[in-house]
């Protein structure tokens, strides 16, 4: 195994085994050894998270373990991200994300946010229990490519419909992504949203699948 392969494997294992210190150490080693930090993120950290997704889908890991894996991933990401050089010709994608007013749950939202962080997007996290008008104001202010909203409970999801209508009226090009336990694909369609992730559980699976797609894209498997 080459030095690079060994370090990428260490990053991956640290995420899967939710070892935060090991992940930070492996990330630093990647920088010290001159490994492209984007490769370390995608083939180390994101690859580890993909394996976590498999463990979650097969009922080997549950949400507590996934949260700890995400903590480990962020330890590595915080070290690697400042060293990633961006292509000046390509505008950086951005997302406004938050849990809707009346909803104080943010586990699913934070897992989806992780996916955007890994991909290197500008993430504007409004937090939770976010008033409807704050989503609209922020989206119009930063002109984000995506607006992602989460509602964990049925009782809070109706607010999403209002936000979508307000944003689409002023900025029809903004893609809208909905997530949360009570949101079904039918409801997302009904509300006029462009994407959807189901529950905290499905956010794990869906978010990780999206990371997988990013990795394929980077390798040129997807054009």
């Amino acid at each position: 195994m080459s030095n690079q392969e060994e370090i990428l494997a260490a990053l991956k294992e640290a995420v899967v085994e939710y070892e935060e210190d090991d992940c930070a150490e492996a990330a630093q080693r990647a920088l010290d050894e001159g490994i492209d930090p984007m490769v370390a993120v995608m083939d180390g950290l994101a690859a580890g998270m993909e394996e976590v997704g498999v463990l979650f889908d097969t009922n080997e890991y549950f949400v507590p373990e996934v949260l700890m894996c995400a903590d480990a991933l962020y330890k590595g990401l915080d070290i690697l991200r400042p060293h990633i050089t961006l292509d000046a010709d390509i505008p950086k994608a951005s997302v406004v994300i938050g849990s809707i007013q009346g909803d104080v749950h943010d586990i699913g939202k934070n897992l989806v946010k992780m996916m955007f962080d890994v991909a290197g997007w500008d993430v504007h996290d409004l937090g939770r229990d976010v008033p409807l008008e704050s989503f609209v104001e922020k989206q119009l202010d930063v002109k984000s490519d995506v607006l992602a909203m989460s509602a964990m409970m049925t009782t809070t999801m109706m607010g999403m419909k209002k936000v979508i209508a307000m944003v689409k009226e002023k900025n029809p090009d903004c893609l809208i992504m909905l997530g949360g336990a009570p949101v079904t694909r039918d409801v997302a369609n009904l509300f006029g949203a462009d994407g959807y992730a189901e529950s905290a559980g499905n956010a794990v699976s869906e978010g990780i699948k999206m990371i997988g797609r990013l990795r394929e894209f980077q390798k040129g498997d997807i054009k």
Partner: peptide, 18 residues
């Protein structure tokens, strides 16, 4: 407690300071 007294429609009370 957040009661959302000025919000439109139905929003259940939530706990703001866990």
């Amino acid at each position: 407690i957040s009661l959302y007294e000025n919000a439109d429609g139905v929003i259940y009370p939530t706990v703001p300071n866990k």
